[in-house]
């Protein structure tokens, strides 16, 4: 499976949760599959999906899912020790690991080579780290939600993209409706 197929499969689970979605194609795909107020789309700032989602989880009680990529986590690797050392059991970081920088043309990442992000997360002190294949992403996500434990899920999948338009929503509109959904 490629990322857009995984997102399509887990969209019904994501639908009821607060989701912070990574810059580029992941946000465009989620926006196309199931645009709703509980999605925060990143339009820039590669790497910060985990940090934004984690700050949100620490600030309130609802479950927050950050959808991130292998390339983006590598960009902001310092996020993993911060997450590990400030446990928020309403937080799930789902890293869709296709071993490539998908939004920029599928250049290979080091995660597709020797670096295992699940091992990095564990070494940083994250206590619940789950590694699954693409077809099991939904099952792992639901289990993480049900566990009420902070969980890092690394989903291994193929690289590959579909053609779709950029998000033209104004960032302040995205942010405002998301904040209303957070507060509701």
């Amino acid at each position: 499976m490629i990322r857009s197929e995984i997102l399509r499969e887990i969209a019904p689970i994501l639908h009821d949760q607060l989701v912070v979605c990574n810059i580029g194609l992941p946000s465009q795909e989620l926006h196309m599959i199931d645009d709703n107020a509980k999605n925060f789309y990143m339009l820039g700032t590669m790497g910060l999906s985990s940090s934004i989602g984690f700050g949100l989880a620490l600030a309130q009680d609802k479950i927050v899912i950050s959808i991130d990529g292998d390339g983006s986590v590598l960009t902001n690797l310092g996020t993993l020790p911060t997450i590990a050392n400030n446990v928020a059991d309403n937080y799930i970081l789902m890293i869709i690991d296709n071993g490539s920088y998908g939004s920029t043309g599928d250049q290979p990442t080091y995660a597709g080579k020797k670096t295992k992000l699940e091992n990095v997360a564990a070494a940083c002190g994250c206590e619940s780290v789950v590694t699954v294949q693409d077809v099991d992403a939904g099952k792992a996500l639901q289990a993480a939600i049900d566990s009420k434990k902070m969980t890092i899920i690394v989903v291994k999948c193929e690289s590959g993209n579909i053609k779709l338009p950029v998000i033209t929503m104004d960032p302040v509109v995205i942010r405002d409706r998301f904040m209303k959904a957070v507060a509701s």
Binding site: G47, F54, G55, A59, Q60, G78, T79, F178
Partner: peptide, 26 residues
């Protein structure tokens, strides 16, 4: 105050953005 040290300042600004959307002043 909830104090959370960050490893790099852009990471910290991400945390602050999330916290603000969660109703806290960062």
């Amino acid at each position: 105050i909830f104090h959370i040290p960050s490893n790099k300042e852009d990471e910290g600004m991400g945390l602050c953005a999330g916290a603000w959307m969660g109703g806290k002043r960062p």
